[in-house]
Design a protein around this nucleic acid. Structure first.
Length: 466
RNA sequence: GUGGCUAUAGUGUAAUGGUUCGCACAGGACCCUGUGGAGGUCUUAGAGAGGGUUCAAAUCCCUCUAGCCACCCCA
């Protein structure tokens, strides 16, 4: 760091850079400068926020491309909602007593006095948009998808960031179990398309009534054994009893065996619905595991719930869930719409990308060009700059290193960019009205008329038919 | 939010409290304004921030910050 502390102890000396930046006139600045702000280090990104660097972008691109492809294939339309919403949307949508709302919400009051928050998930916003724009008047179900950053003020950890990216699919306005199944199929296709071997765990929470009844039974059961519960679990008992079921406490694990099972409390309709979902999955061959203890952290789920895990992580690594979702038949109404059935799911793209990165390290290079323009001398450079535009307008990926004069260096760069052809233009060529085309694989080259270069290259690339 | 571990160039690493912090890769320049993958020479760049102990700190201590691990929770 250039600004070093006072040379008090360290004589340091050290040959200073040519221009000894006249930093501190030691004495004079002493009073002039206000207060030497402390903690002056290099500025870093804010906690839990990270950069997605160029080297990783191709993974993200792949994920995004597949998302779009699948969305089209399955008939979902893209929607983008604001990152900032009224805080009450999330309180009503996600649930007041969930951790997501209680302690992980980035919320503040605007200068105008509105209470707003950064979205912690996508479903509430999508449903809000559905209601706000009267999408109930469109053919149902309305199938929407989105991708974008979400924000949760949680403690960062591997696979957990305060700004993270979710890809989500929602189907609003249809209660048929085939919708639930199709969503799971979309998710399955997505993971498979990325080469991720995953299983989906499925459960049903039933209708709000059956869920509530079950919850009561569960609370009653555990309350009787309250003394044996850890503090964490006592808290859960009050706040989110269903969560007790995936407690890691061995004592609870034991109690679980005797505990009421959710399947026994499902109403007939939910049970039938669930069976249908499973039948459809069987039909398509989607591998799933029934998990009677699967509950989800958001309040809005009803009936079907599911979560994806990478296969092979038989040991539950923390943060190993890649995504999840389910049916939320009550949410639309909860947010002020008419009673409307709906279902959806989302993936955590950060985790998915990191998974691909670990299992399929890529050799992809950065910028790729098919043709490279090498130039020599000022005349050559001028001609090359113009020619570059011609190539670009013809849609041919073309590379350059105009700032380099050395031909050898340019060849190196051409090679690094993976160019199959190099067009060389020097003084001589400019004067002759020609250009050299070099075949990088064969090492041979030919001289062509400068006016025909683009045409010649197109021919070589097999793009003449256009 | 709780507990623990960690922090050296862009990356990965090395150095019993004692010279100027070593190495590899990456980057830049040159060898080389007329032809690529190699090589050679030179070079840029570092102790997360702040404070303390000590004759002396990358090394020991404290605080902050960040990352990681477990918990909580979740994607």
């Amino acid at each position: 760091m250039p600004p070093k502390k006072s040379a008090g102890k360290k004589p340091a000396a050290k040959s200073v850079a040519p221009k000894p930046a006249p930093k501190k006139p030691a004495e004079s600045s002493g009073e002039a400068v206000p207060a030497p702000r402390k903690g002056m280090g290099p500025i870093q990104s804010v906690r839990g926020m990270r950069d997605l660097l160029p080297a990783d972008q191709h993974y993200w691109r792949r994920v995004n491309r597949l998302s779009e492809e699948l969305a089209n294939a399955y008939g979902f339309e893209r929607i983008d909602t604001p990152m900032v919403e009224e805080t009450s949307l999330f309180i009503r949508g996600v649930g007041r007593s969930t951790d997501i709302v209680e302690k992980e919400l980035y919320s503040w009051e605007t200068p105008g006095g509105e209470n707003v928050a950064l979205r912690p998930e996508g479903t509430a916003s999508v449903v809000r948009a559905y209601v706000q724009h009267g999408m109930l008047n469109q053919p149902q179900p309305v199938k929407l998808w989105y991708v974008g950053p979400m924000f949760r003020y949680d403690r960062p950890q591997a696979g957990r960031f305060r700004q993270f990216y979710q890809l989500g699919f929602e189907a609003i306005g249809d209660a048929d179990p085939v919708i639930d199944a199709q969503l799971m199929i979309v998710g399955w296709s997505f993971l498979r398309g990325l080469g991720i071997d995953a299983v989906v765990r499925v459960n049903s929470l039933g209708s709000p009534e059956s869920r509530a009844n079950y919850k009561n039974a569960l609370v009653a059961y555990f309350r009787a054994k309250r003394a044996k519960l850890s503090d964490d679990d006592k808290r859960r008992l009050l706040k989110n009893p269903l969560r007790l079921l995936d407690s890691k406490d061995p004592a609870v694990q034991e109690m679980k065996a005797e505990a009421p099972q959710i399947v026994d409390w499902l109403d007939e309709e939910s049970k039938a619905h669930f069976m249908r979902v499973l039948e459809y999955l069987d039909e398509v061959g989607v591998p799933y595991q029934l998990d009677p203890y699967l509950v989800r952290g958001l309040d809005y789920y009803t009936k079907t719930v599911f979560e994806w895990y990478a296969a092979g992580d038989d040991q539950e690594l923390a943060q190993s869930a890649l995504g999840g979702g389910g049916r939320y038949d009550g949410l639309v109404e909860q947010l002020g719409g008419r009673p409307t059935p709906a279902a959806g799911f989302s993936f955590g793209l950060d985790r998915i990308v990191s998974r691909i990165k670990d299992t399929q390290p890529s050799t992809a290079i950065g910028y790729k060009a098919e043709v490279f323009l090498a130039q020599l001398g000022d005349m050559g450079r001028k001609k090359a700059i113009a020619l570059f535009e011609e190539f670009r307008e013809s849609g041919i990926p073309v590379g350059e290193a105009f700032s380099k004069a050395n031909i050898k260096q340019q060849m190196e760069i051409a090679n690094r960019q993976g160019a199959k052809w190099v067009v060389v233009i020097g003084q001589k060529e400019v004067l002759d009205g020609t250009a050299i085309i070099r075949d990088m694989e064969a090492g041979s080259q030919e001289i062509v008329d400068a006016k025909k270069v683009v045409h010649e290259i197109k021919k070589k690339l097999g793009r003449n038919g256009e």
